[in-house]
Amino acid sequence: MKYLEAIRLALAELLADDQRVFIYGQDIAGPFGGAFKATKGLSERFPGRVLNSPISEDAMTGLAIGAAMDGMRPIVEYQFADFASVAFNQLVNHAGSIFYRTGRPCPIVARLPVGGTPGGGPFHCQMPETWLSNHPGLVVVAPATVADAYFMLKDAVACRDPVAFLEHKYLYYHLEAEFDPRVAEHPGLGRAVVRRQGDDLTIVAYSGMVHHATAAAAVLESDHNISAEVVDLRCVRPLDEETILASLARTGRIIIASEGFPFGGPTAEVAALVAEKGFAYLDAPPVRLAARDTPIPFHPELFAEHHPDDQAIVQAALELAKY
């Protein structure tokens, strides 16, 4: 099953199991089925519950918030996470603060296709977790596996808080895994997972970067005799501090990798966590790997240079290991 298919399966089951669930977004109804076909076939199976919205992220988010406050479980699909900046006010000022202000939950799920693809350019590749996770009240998740895409989407809909659900566009069709929802493991929202165990250093990543991290760990092991542990955050906010610190306590060295921009964000947050609460575990300064501090280039070769990949993580790990 592909990552996108796991999302579609979860959506179908959510619609089938819970009458409060509906999906709202631009061009998501049949026959188009959304920009990435996540909802393909769903409007036909669930008439009136997979609804096209006007081309206004602001409006569609506001409608979903109202519905959620009135007892519904709306799932909002944004064509690209970049465009959710138009709904920033609705997400952080309204959805994020409603429970605090009124005592009424606001259980919306914002499905945000994130991450870079070659030729995507500055408005179709960005990572929104830094600006979304800075605001209290939002849960921000970034599944990296087929199983997580399925289960975390279900958990997101079950969650009484508004959830930003970051789906990596590259993984949609490129990540495929044997997956049986009946037997797959299912850690809850807010838990990080050790994807690969190691002794010499820890690589923390989330979303698509997890795959670069595990590929780098394999190279480090086979070519350099360095045993790297990979921690998949899964959930950017809340952050699973315990799992990160436990891994660092074993290894003493940490790399935090993301394809987001370098200023602030989860990489900085984990580095701060490590400095504040994990100082006595450190053998070397924490290393942050992030995208370059420029808008994302169109040209595939420039794009390839713009964000960290397996090779960048391997290089950083070699430096770190000898510190």
Partner: peptide
């Protein structure tokens, strides 16, 4: 090193 955050070096 562009915008990339450099790893620590010896």
């Amino acid at each position: 090193d562009g915008g990339r955050i450099a790893p620590p070096s010896l």
